[in-house]
Simulated scan of single mutants.
Amino acid sequence: MSRQKFATTAGIALCCAVVGVGLVGCDADTDGDSSAPAPAPEEGTGEDLLTGTQTITVGDHTVKVSCSGEPADGRPLVVLLHGGGDDLTTMAPFQETLSADGRVCSYDRLGAGGSDQPGGPQDYDSVGETLTGVLDQVAGEEPVVLVGHSMGGLIAGRYAPDHQDRVAGLVLLDSTSPTAVADVSDRIPESDTGPAGELRAQTLAIFAGENPELLVFTDGDVASAGDIPVRVIQHGQQYLGEVPEYGEGLEEDWTAGQNKWLALSEDSELSTAENSGHYIHVDEPDVAVAAIDEVTTRAAG
């Protein structure tokens, strides 16, 4: 593999899998229609039910939100959190599938898609404030099930322990590790002057806030969200292993990070989507749908 080809391949792997945020020249190919429009508004859902794609006001910002499907008795609202560098359109086909069984909403975080830019650097608390503002308007006082992909899973996992009155369950789809900064900085030495060293520097810059959402990643232990149902699904296609010398270790770190998320709940399980890359909801949507069905059923019970 040439130096240029390696840098491109490894960059795609780490920016999309470790962070989910686009580096220069890193446009993830999800094998799906990431530009597909969000589900269209539905009729007969009531005046107070936000449906279709709309712009709402959260604090001092406008946020693009999409909701579809009809409320189902006993089934909590499902809220999708996209990965970094993506927006709600990336999950639109998956949202449409889920909408057949109940109500589903998604939104663009500040700095993504059709939402406003953040006013400055963000941390987990500030992105959580936006999430709370969205939940206030799409769910009211009813608890929800959060489904987060990549960076969206990281945000969901950090949000749930401090908002146990709002979150009834979690599904984490190949979520960014709670120790992502250390995983990369410890695995690839600073002294590496090759493509891997460049990759390390780029990735750590993204973690430091050089990403569209200006989110500054900080490592930490995983706090408990009680006994809510939590299902963690990791990729099965070992594409991080393509990084010469460090690939096997990066895959080990990734799996270790998925296991750390199990500390979120006494009712947590880890599984592997064997035929999937990073975009599990695109590569193996049936696996993701089954996990969401299980979590919503348990949350409703």
Rank of each mutant, 00 (worst) to 15 (best):
N211K: 09
G241A: 15
P178R: 07
G113V: 03
G22S: 14
A139S: 02
A299I: 00
S276P: 03
S185K: 10
D136Y: 13
E213H: 03
G247Q: 05
G83E: 10
G148M: 01
Y239A: 10
V243I: 15
S276E: 08
L204V: 09
T132G: 11
P93W: 11
L88S: 08
R103I: 02
P39C: 12
G194P: 06
A139K: 00
G11D: 09
T218P: 04
H281A: 11
G83T: 06
E252G: 10
P229Y: 12
D87I: 05
L77G: 11
D136M: 01
V21P: 00
D219V: 10
H61W: 10
V58A: 12
V289D: 02
T255M: 12
L98I: 04
A201T: 14
D123I: 01
P189K: 06
E245F: 08
W261T: 12
T193G: 14
S2M: 02
G148I: 05
V147P: 03
D286R: 10
D60C: 04
S99Q: 09
A72M: 04
E284K: 10
T203Y: 06
R200T: 08
L146P: 08
A256T: 15
R109N: 08
T90A: 12
N259L: 12
L270H: 15
D136W: 01
T8M: 05
